[in-house]
Design a protein around this nucleic acid. Structure first.
Length: 412
RNA sequence: GGAGGGAUACCCAAGUGGCCAAAGGGGGCAGACUGUAAAUCUGUUGUCGCUGACUUCGAUGGUUCGAAUCCAUCUCCCUCCA
């Protein structure tokens, strides 16, 4: 709790402000930091997680890293797993009413979350709580009192509700309560700061006003940008399949990072790595002047990210794998073995269509046929042009496309 | 409770009796190219015993030589009025 906390307030604010989209309000933040420094009482940084998506990906780490910075300055974090609100579903950004989760699903998801957030956060300085702890105890009277703190007009200011309302789409009454409940969480834990993506703007600001209404000091709201996914367009999310999960294999983290569009390189450096701001500036400069190959910068990004979740050694291994397989189009170090079944061998030879399907390279025979016609299938590096081949030997290597390889094993 | 609108492939979305396995876009996959699994270009994208056959347009039944398209019933979603 010492160390960084002795930095000047200006310096602290600078670090916290790095990458942040907006801080409301900066003077409040300074005041809180000053008081904390004086009294030695750490600030409480709140983050709410919605237990719908059970895997943490880089998009989540934008906010988690920011919290980590607070922790490194000696502050404490409280992670609120929205197990109760999760049963409602955060309407934020949704054009449709979310599916309500069952109690069981919520609990399972929350557990996965807990395991993953500590890849970024300092476990010693983090408390995890479930909001059903207090929300499930509210009675109707409490709920009505809570609801009276907010007006319909206020709620409908929200862009997503407004849009749905104007488009004549349904809005469940329970959804209107979501911001209030999230705000109530802040009140219960007495949050000093709440972190969130810019899409959480309304919910988090509701916390500020509710705390004030209940006679508590308002939390500071810090909004982090929403990270684009590997497609470079949509926000990173599991359901869109454009995510890089913190739990993924080194090769996948490395490879997926290499597949982001070039224009996202600096953004990723800024938001999801621990790179120093000065270095970030240098990278930006070198990319702008064009005297660096963006590929090399991206490779560095991929290395950093892989190292962050698997260590430097694993990152180097992943990089070598990438160079070998994708740059030089060589075979990977380790190949899965596949035992060829007798059923696909007949007097004419070996049925490649069936083989490709049974190896799991494609879901249907038609798909396999297509791959062969498109010239994507190779045996020992030689393109296959017919649906059947004469022979296969032990150790032959079958390749479909650029990513799928398998080594043949013949049962004698 | 009354009136109306809708449901098409992974997603969005055209199609209102045969030329529809179904336009277009997105996404996916593959190929070319490349300084990268970036960008760009091209092809492909229901299934199968694949120059043919089978199944598919919310569900079921019907009209018809023939239906995603017409009719009936049903299910689900949305809107307006109350």
């Amino acid at each position: 709790m010492e160390g960084l906390n002795m930095m000047s307030i200006e310096e602290q604010v600078k670090i916290i402000g790095k990458g942040a989209d907006e801080i409301i309000n900066i003077d409040d933040l300074k005041r809180k930091l000053e008081r904390s420094q004086k009294t030695g009482i750490p600030l409480l940084i709140k983050l709410g997680l919605d237990p719908t998506a059970p895997d943490i990906h880089l998009g989540h780490t934008v906010v988690l890293r920011k919290i980590r910075q607070f922790q490194d300055m000696g502050h404490r974090a409280v992670i609120i797993i929205g197990d109760f609100t999760g049963m409602i579903g955060d309407p934020t950004g949704r054009s449709k009413t979310r599916k309500q989760l069952s109690r069981q699903e919520v609990i399972e998801n929350a557990r996965t979350y807990e395991n993953q957030i500590f890849k970024v956060l300092d476990k010693e300085k983090t408390e995890v709580r479930f909001n059903s702890e207090w929300l499930s105890k509210l009675n109707l009277e409490d709920v009505i009192r809570l609801a009276s703190k907010c007006t319909v007009a206020r709620i409908l200011e929200r862009e997503d509700f407004q849009k749905r309302f104007n488009n004549h789409e349904s809005i469940g009454i329970h959804e209107l309560f979501y911001p209030l409940m999230q705000a109530y969480d802040s009140f219960v834990v007495k949050a000093d700061v709440e972190l969130g993506g810019t899409d959480q703007r309304f919910n988090i600001l509701m916390g500020r006003s509710l705390q004030k209404d209940f006679g508590q000091e308002s939390q500071v709201a810090i909004f982090m940008p929403i990270l684009e996914g590997t497609d470079g367009i949509e926000k990173m999310s599991k359901s869109l399949g454009n995510y890089i999960g913190v739990d993924e294999e080194p090769n996948d983290i490395y490879g997926k990072t290499m597949s982001i569009p070039d224009k996202l390189i600096t953004r990723y450096f800024e938001l999801v790595t621990d790179i120093h701001p000065d270095e970030l500036d240098e990278i930006k400069k070198s990319l702008n002047t064009g005297n660096v190959n963006p590929r090399d910068v991206k490779m560095r990004l991929a290395r950093e990210l892989t190292a962050l979740y698997h260590g430097h050694e694993a990152a180097v291994v992943a990089e070598n794998h990438f160079k070998k397989v994708f740059q030089k189009h060589e075979l990977p170090e380790e190949l899965e073995e596949y035992e060829v079944q007798q059923s696909i061998i007949d007097s004419d030879g070996i049925d490649m269509v069936k083989l490709l399907v049974s190896v799991g390279f494609c879901p249907s025979n038609s798909e396999a046929r297509r791959l062969i016609f498109q010239g994507a299938v190779k045996v020992n590096g030689n393109k296959i042009e017919t649906l059947k081949i004469d022979n296969l030997c032990n150790g032959d290597i079958i390749q479909a496309g650029k990513l799928k390889f398998v080594k043949v094993k013949i049962k004698s």
